[in-house]
Design a protein around this nucleic acid. Structure first.
Length: 565
RNA sequence: CGGGGCGUGGCGCAGUCUGGUAGCGCACCUGCUUUGGGAGCAGGGGGUCCCCAGUUCGAAUCUGGGCGCCCCGACCA
């Protein structure tokens, strides 16, 4: 491709709303352009990267016998009502009406449509398993789209769905997809981690996320050298080391205006890990739940939602706290709260003696003991895991890192097949719901993640497999006939070798071309200028180290082919 | 959903408080010079100042309504 004929316009400045590096670089390098909040046009240069990733994805999935199809992006409401997600998905589901007023939605995912298709086509266990995928645009009306392609509303995703006669068959496909995803991310040259994950509103049992490690990621991961790794939404820990406490009789102490754990901790001279933090939650079913956790730790609200089997637990209002505890916010404790359901995290349950609110204005209780002074209630893990916590498998100290969720695989079980009557006849002639799995991979997000992980101050440093072009051929002074003749010839030869080459034949000054070259980050660069050419040399370098090698004109092609490989 | 901020050529901004008919840098076009790390000089094109209504002789500027966009928060007992 000759740059002079191409649609690639770089910019020196970026819109002020672009904050993360991949977003800035994708705009500056002419890959994407914003149309509306979280909605982007992918320009030709960006499109090439996406296509390269899609090709890798297809190759690895096809190798696992997954079959590509294409489903509509506009889906009828009836299917979503059947699965129950027309209500459950909430505002993220973009709903539209056609000219007759019939309700549709723009697909955020395609479980309903694929399940509807399969229930109509497949009757027998002999036709199972099947694994079907598409690479198709999705729309999710996110609360807060941000970071360009990292969290867009409209985005390109590969989604796959498998159907099985039994759990063993699902296990095999799940493993296949796990391996395919590993192959895909490895092929892209990305530093990634597979972690245990919560299933969120997709539903189902077992689930893993593929995280590209980057500080700008929106997910927290804890991991251990032994191999355990999990999203903090899901992560469990070993028992926390118990703090040393003095034992004594329960006693009320005055703590005027000392509301937060930090304040009371300082006021009483006791560390925060000797406290029990008591929080009141409500949810859509309006039951108030009292939750206790150790004073220095945080509640994982995803775990709480799962424990309560609700969608969104929310903290009780100040008025509700006043009504139930009889005290303003800041003085809640488990002692004497008989009316409400009490859930205690193991971190709090393990305390031999602790400090908590007295359910009375300006007062706390010290030396409280479970069993003696207050019933323990249900002990359920609600802890938000953090760096330094013990690994649940081996007990070693875990680390915390951040990652970008680029892939997510689920064992769905029968959630959709039961709701939608997607059944088959087994060998005994019994009607059974199919067991399902689903597997997502964000195409645009993975490309953004690749940039997040591979760049420097001057621009993108593409991993070769995702690079829009493999070789950038620069003619420094295309007006000079010798230079342009040599460059034209090399360009033709590279094309003949099947190499993706971008030929910078623009009539720009050298400085502009070098800056652009660094910005767009093509892995291999060949520079032809009259200075080198007078000695019969072409300068070849790679973007990742920019080390310059002068190569004889006659050897340049072979060298470039070697580096491109 | 709550809080804050912003909408002025393609991009980044000034002008708004104190109303008088729009400007700067980058980008773009033409010419000359320059040509190995975002050149110089000269000339030039491009804006219903987000939209609607109102006040006024006069509105980018004041008032009201709407739309769009961004950031922060949704972390506490």
């Amino acid at each position: 491709m000759r740059w002079s004929n191409y649609y690639l316009f770089t910019t020196r400045e970026v819109p002020k709303d672009a904050e993360v590096i991949s977003h800035r670089l994708m705009i500056r390098a002419g890959m994407i352009k914003k149309l509306a909040a979280g909605i982007y046009t992918t320009l030709p240069f960006g499109s090439r990267s996406m296509t390269k990733l899609a090709t890798i994805v297809r190759r690895e999935l096809d190798a696992k016998n997954a079959l590509e199809l294409t489903m509509p992006t506009i889906q009828p409401a009836e299917l979503w009502q059947e699965s129950g997600r027309w209500q459950a998905y909430g505002k993220e589901l973009l709903r539209v009406n056609d000219r007759n007023g019939r309700e549709f939605c723009y697909a955020p995912t395609a479980e309903e449509v694929i399940t509807d298709m399969v229930r109509k086509d497949i009757r027998s266990y002999k036709q199972l398993p099947v694994n079907l995928y598409q690479i198709q645009t999705k729309f999710r009306d996110e609360i807060r789209p941000r970071f360009g392609l990292m969290r867009g509303r409209e985005f390109l995703m590969k989604d796959a769905y498998s159907f099985h006669a039994d759990a063993e068959s699902l296990d095999v496909t799940y493993r296949d997809m796990h391996d395919a995803y590993c192959a895909i991310f490895a092929a892209c040259g990305l530093d990634y981690k597979v972690v245990e994950a919560d299933t969120g509103n997709i539903g189902g049992s077992d689930s893993h996320e593929f995280m590209v490690l980057a500080q700008t990621g929106e997910s927290d991961i804890v991991s251990c050298d032994c191999g355990y790794a999990a999203n903090t939404e899901k992560a469990v820990t070993g028992a926390l080391p118990a703090p040393e406490v003095e034992l004594g009789e329960m006693e009320e102490v005055a703590t005027p205006d000392q509301k937060s754990i930090a304040e009371v901790s300082q006021f009483l001279g006791k560390s925060a890990d000797q406290f029990v933090k008591t929080l009141l939650y409500t949810s859509e079913n309006e039951e108030v739940v009292v939750v206790c956790i150790r004073g220095d730790r945080e509640i994982n609200e995803i775990k709480l939602a799962n424990a309560l089997d609700v969608q969104y637990p929310v903290l009780a209002t100040d008025a509700q706290v006043q009504e139930i505890t009889g005290a303003p916010v800041g003085f809640a404790g488990p002692v004497g709260l008989k009316e409400a359901r009490l859930i205690v995290d193991p971190s709090a349950a393990a305390l031999e003696s602790f400090v908590c609110g007295a359910n009375k204005d300006d007062a706390h209780l010290v030396n409280v003991q479970w069993g003696r002074d207050v019933e323990k209630g249900e002990v359920i893990d609600l802890l938000l895991a953090d760096a330094g916590d013990p690994c649940p498998r081996c007990g070693d100290t875990m680390q915390k890192t951040r990652g970008i969720e680029t892939g997510h695989i689920f064992k769905l079980g029968c959630k959709y097949s039961e709701a939608m009557g997607c059944n088959f006849l087994d060998a005994e002639g019994r009607d059974e719901p199919m067991i399902m799995g689903c597997y997502g991979l964000g195409i645009g997000r993975t490309v953004a993640a690749a940039i997040e992980q591979n760049h420097d101050d001057d621009g993108i440093i593409w991993p070769k497999p995702l690079a829009p072009f493999t070789v950038l051929l620069m003619a420094l002074d295309p007006q000079n006939e010798e230079v342009s003749a040599a460059a034209d010839q090399l360009y033709g030869e590279l094309q003949a070798k099947g190499i993706d080459v971008l030929y910078d034949d623009r009539k720009e000054r050298p400085g502009v071309k070098f800056k652009d070259a660094d910005l767009i980050g093509i892995p291999v660069r060949a520079v032809i200028g009259k200075r080198g050419l007078s000695d019969g040399k072409i300068e070849i370098s790679e973007r990742h180290d920019r080390e310059k090698h002068l190569v004889d004109v006659g050897e340049a092609l072979a060298k470039l082919v070697e580096l491109a490989g």
